[in-house]
Amino acid sequence: MKRDNPSLYGALQLGLLVNVLLRAQTLFWTREGLATLLSGILVTAAVGLVFARTWPLAQCLALRCGFIALLLAGSGLDILSLWQLYSAVYPDVVNLFGICLTVLIPVAYLRRVSAIAQTANVVLGLLLVACVILVLSVAERLRICNLQMAAMGEADCLDAMRAQCTLYPELLLPALWPDHEKRGTHTVLRLAAFGAVFNIGVHLLLELFFGAAMPDARNPLHQAARCGALSVFDRLEWLQLIVWTMAVSVKLALHLYAVTRLADAPRTTENSLTAMPFFAGYAAVLLFLCAVARNWDFAVMSQWRNVAAWGFAAAVAGIGGIRWLTGFAAPKKA
């Protein structure tokens, strides 16, 4: 009940779930995904761990700026993917500016670590409950014989491996904050495993539901959700969308916190709030990014973001490794 050491582990988990729910699905078949699961986990966890070790040694102004850019790009992509989802479901009703406002305004109330941690836990709980409701509501339509039986191809396995090796910022973020805001020493490993297993679980659900049509389905999770009718309402996808939107807000708040730390921005001493002008700046940058990139190819942007994340992690690992070998003393403040 006392908020001495809020942990951001829940917020990181939520960030990974958002990645899976909004854009990572239908990239591979479940069987291929399962075959490459372990390697995917090990690769991403290893990168995260190496990054966590080398970041304190390597950090400099340029790398900090690079990380901030990566986080801003990730936040922008999250907003754009949410907008695409809404545009597909409710065409001509919700505009990009509206989506930006509705996910960014709540971040004004999520400028404190403890608020992010607690809200993330609640939203994570809601998201898991919503997922359980989704699975229960479509359980009748899940057919085992929808699983694809074609022989495993090398290309499919590579696709699955590539998809599972996507380097999301959430795997790099634990390097930024002090130990008490993580959870234990194996945070990155657990996060990687959690994200990958959830990703496979979602793919399994989709394959059982859609069968061969899975890769062709636009916003497949939403389409599955709309078939669920457990309540007095005729359907459930609106509930899913509400929870996903809430999760995106929390994810943006997490990114704001990380940007605040990276930029060493002012935080009030009494309650460690990120200053309002800094938040306003963050929101303005995201609005600008979204406005610029609204017509760009989303798949290409996602790929570039992934390439940039890998490149950034490699640069940090390289510089940190060299400094470690040459006996560079890390500054005390992470």
Binding site: V94, L101, T102, P106, Y109, T119, V123, L241, I242
Partner: peptide
């Protein structure tokens, strides 16, 4: 003003 995302925004503001 915004429909579904607006409701979600309201919910997360209150929760936050």
């Amino acid at each position: 003003a915004f429909g579904l995302p607006g409701l979600a925004g309201g919910a997360v503001i209150i929760l936050a």
